[in-house]
């Protein structure tokens, strides 16, 4: 059973639908017992990272998430709050990934948010098994994790940033695998097979 963390951050319906399409059993929960006994944990997130971190803290979830030994996947803002710090609201995150999240700088020809399909490069993880270099995935974000030792995939807007991060059993994707067509489905399936 997959535990999808319920912490009042945005719509999880599309993630739930994607898991359903993969035939996976999942549950929306904030219960520490269910989270600990799940086979996989997903931390979704749409919206503001500072609010996301506050909501997690309010529910005492960081200390539950910190101690997990099974695969954990943070998506978009879910990944950002797993980093050390974010410029969005100037708050500290859970500090799982060694990255400080920053805002994209608006400049001529560079739109913020970064919204749309960008190619993945430098993929180095089982998460990307069977995914070709240059495959496109769907992003919607104004903040990004710069390259760091935990980076396991990159993309560009216009400079390189971390499209995915990994530390031990913790994974994070800046893009939305649940909205990234067949490539995204394969990445989700790879995660579920970890």
């Amino acid at each position: 059973m997959i535990a999808v963390i319920d912490y009042g951050m945005g719509n999880i319906r599309s993630l739930g639908n994607a898991l359903q399409r993969l035939g996976a059993e999942w549950r929306l929960t904030a219960d520490p017992e269910i989270i600990r006994s799940a086979s996989h944990v997903i931390l979704p997130g749409v919206g503001n990272a500072a609010e996301a971190m506050a909501n997690l803290t309010e529910r005492n979830l960081p200390e539950v998430l910190w101690r997990l030994r099974h695969p954990v996947l943070g998506i978009c803002v879910g990944m950002q709050v797993m980093c050390r710090h974010t410029e969005e609201g100037d708050v500290d995150g859970m500090g799982i990934f060694d990255a400080k999240v920053r805002r994209f700088t608006e400049q001529p020809g560079v739109k913020v948010p970064h919204m749309g399909w960008s190619p993945l490069t430098n993929m180095e993880s089982k998460l990307f098994k069977g995914i070709e270099k240059g495959s496109y995935v769907y992003f919607v974000h104004s903040y990004f994790a710069p390259l760091c030792p935990d980076t396991i995939a990159t993309s560009r807007h216009p400079g390189l940033f971390s499209a995915a991060l990994k530390y031990e059993n913790y994974y994070g994707t800046q893009f939305h695998p649940e909205k990234s067509g067949e490539v995204g489905e394969r990445i989700l399936r790879n995660f579920l097979e970890l």
Binding site: N11, R13, S14, R21, K179, G181
Partner: peptide, 28 residues
């Protein structure tokens, strides 16, 4: 549509309140 489609989709037509938007967000 949300159950089936694995790429982003936008819906519109006759949305005139936050409630209309909320209903469609909730639907996926």
């Amino acid at each position: 549509i949300a159950e089936r489609i694995n790429i982003p989709f936008t819906v519109g037509g006759g949305i005139s309140s936050v409630e209309d938007a909320a209903r469609l967000l909730e639907a996926g």
